[in-house]
């Protein structure tokens, strides 16, 4: 058994002349709940579709649970549960019929669990999909994924556009699955509060590239705000890299990534929250993206 649920090496995907994903190298350990964060168009869905074997890399490689998901046999696909952003369901079906379909398509289908899930969510087996609210449809779609009892769940914005209660119910259902089955989860989201409460691993995508990928705890431990109220420091402490800078009046505050403990006491040091770190990386991505565009237009075109 592979200790990684997902390993990508120089993974790239191009649609026409546009790179949706470039040079992604990541390794995601087993048993994590991974948040995939990034602005719209950063390549989140592309990465998730590649992981689910729904599309093929332009270059580079990807392995999921130790296998190439695109070339792989049905066996691997049974071990993965993928939920698309659109949450496709047969609108005219009753929930019972969806489940029967799920059972036919998946040998590992747990009908008892499927019934229990919808029961907890207050949805009847006789309800038709198109009579359900958007939130309930999302819950049924997730239930379809969970009842497969997959080792890895790949969820593209599973909680987007849900009201707070539906969202809470859905995420709780997901966490219970993680607790009961030890499933790994990779989910994309725009809600930073979800990242803090349910995810223990974070991947930030920005402009088709990986900007950050690590354990959430380590990310928080390895970043600091350094402030200098009078801008009198000319030098940053050793082992630090600036990720974001804010200049106020006379003072300056950097968000830095530190590779060594900071011993320099000429800076005021404070601990950022996870949200602040994520936002800094996303902002930095926006700036670099603009620079890329202006300074190196040649690099964006690559030989076929």
């Amino acid at each position: 058994m592979s200790e990684w649920v997902l390993q990508a090496d120089s993974l790239s995907k191009r649609f026409g002349r546009k790179w949706a994903l470039r040079d992604c190298t990541v390794s995601i350990p087993q048993g994590k709940v991974v948040a995939l964060v990034g602005p719209n168009g950063a390549g989140k869905s592309t990465l998730l579709r590649l992981a689910a074997g729904l599309s093929q890399p332009t270059s580079g490689t990807i392995e999921v649970l130790g296998h190439d998901p695109h070339k792989s046999n049905e066996d691997l696909l049974r071990r993965i549960g993928y939920l698309d952003q659109e949450r496709p369901l047969y609108r005219g079906f009753r929930v019972r019929e969806l489940f029967r379909f799920g059972a036919d398509a998946n040998p590992g289908w747990d009908m008892q669990a499927a019934h229990l899930y919808v029961d907890q969510l207050g949805i009847s087996l006789n309800d038709r999909v198109n009579s359900l609210s958007g939130g309930q449809q999302a819950q049924v779609a997730l239930t379809m994924c969970l009842a497969k009892k997959p080792e890895l769940l790949i969820l593209d914005e599973p909680a987007a556009a849900l009201d707070p209660v539906a969202r809470e119910d859905l995420l709780r259902l997901l966490m219970r699955q993680v607790s009961d089955n030890g499933s790994s989860v990779i989910l994309s989201t725009h809600a930073l509060s979800d990242v803090e409460s349910i995810c223990d691993y974070l991947v930030i995508l920005s402009h088709s590239r990986i900007a950050l990928c690590d354990d959430v705890d380590f990310i928080v431990e390895s970043h600091r705000f350094l402030s200098d109220p009078t801008s009198s420091n000319s030098r940053l402490p050793d082992g630090t890299t600036i990720m974001d800078t804010r200049i106020s009046g006379r003072g300056v505050t950097h968000l830095v990534k530190m590779d060594l403990p900071i011993v320099d006491d000429s800076w005021q040091i404070s601990e950022p929250t996870l949200d602040e770190i994520i936002l800094a990386y996303l902002r930095q991505g926006v700036r670099n993206g603009l620079l890329d565009h202006v300074e190196t237009p040649v690099n964006t075109r690559v030989l076929p």
């Binding site: 994590k32 809470e168 709780r172 966490m175 219970r176 993680v178 607790s179 409460s197 349910i198 223990d200």
Partner: peptide, 10 residues
């Protein structure tokens, strides 16, 4: 995990 929405690993 049933009380609050939280990662079981946490």
């Amino acid at each position: 995990v049933t009380q609050v929405t939280i990662n079981p690993n946490t």
